[in-house]
């Protein structure tokens, strides 16, 4: 699992945010377009790409995209 790949996959889910502004340290809850719909899209992407089921609690715990990546990595291990 590569952080760079995950960030790219995350960016592909976004429709309005400036991709160049998105990095490992982006606090994704603070993105204007963050919503239940984007949360569901993240859950579906992680399930498909990493075969990992993430929960609302995981999304809440993760402040940044890197935090989320680390949670997925931990669940995958």
């Amino acid at each position: 699992m590569e952080l760079g790949t995950f960030i790219q996959q995350f960016i592909e889910l976004l429709e309005e945010s400036d991709a160049e502004q998105i990095s490992a340290s982006t606090r994704f809850h603070e993105l204007d377009e963050y919503s239940s719909l984007l949360a569901l899209t993240i859950v579906a992407m992680v399930d498909e790409e990493y075969d990992v089921a993430i929960k609302a609690e995981d999304l809440r715990k993760a402040q940044t995209i890197e935090d989320l990546f680390n949670i997925i990595k931990e669940k995958k291990a």
Binding site: E16, D32, E33, S35, S36, L38
Partner: peptide
């Protein structure tokens, strides 16, 4: 309610 508003607009 910015986050929900953006979702509803879609």
């Amino acid at each position: 309610n910015v986050h929900h508003l953006n979702e509803v607009k879609k």
